[in-house]
Amino acid sequence: MKLKVNNVHKFYGTNEARIEVLKGINCEVLDGEICVLLGPSGSGKSTLLNIIGGLESADEGCIDIGDFCTANMKERELSSYRRNNLGFVFQFYNLIPNLTVKENIEVCAHLTKNPLDIDDLLKTLGLEEHKDKFPNQLSGGQQQRCAIGRALVKNPSLLLFDEPTGALDYKTSKEILDLIEKINHKYKNTMIIVTHNSVIGEMADRVLKLHDGMITSNKLNESKVPAASLEW
């Protein structure tokens, strides 16, 4: 599903303390693309991701995704938008501690009429052996796999990753990125990955660079590197 960001502005604070964190963002991400959003801290990349994900509203402009336009959406509509179109993966996994791996994935399977086959998904995630374990019995990488499974099980058209490797070591980070890539090939979801690690941009179809609330670069990656080959 094609994603279009139309002249998005976002302000924080009031009066003299008012700061514009997004200054008219315009961009497109095509169906099935992996888009990496790069930028230093405070550049506005997480804010943009939150607006795309319907977690924050834009003060001006809107997001078009398929038939939806987020402008003027009410809370209930935003909820429905997220339910039907989006999957979120966070830096710190945010798993429910008293549900097993399989149950954590089932939490989001419940939100759709046609979820992916959970056993098949567990195999893809490499969590088949751990499906009955609780999150505190897993390593960080396994927990992030589970979080990806939870976001993916609805088979959403758009998967949003907020610093998915931020809490992981080098080796595990590479495994997770490899998994993201595999999923993209298998399920063809559009993916937006927010990161400050520029190397991750090498595995993306598109790289957007943000600085001080503005897109400074929007490039299609013509020489994609497989995730497994990334090094930093």
Partner: peptide, 14 residues
């Protein structure tokens, strides 16, 4: 709080 935020972000209604 974070779990609730995640569930709400995933599309669970209030």
């Amino acid at each position: 709080a974070v779990i609730i935020g995640t569930l709400r972000a995933s599309g669970y209604t209030k």
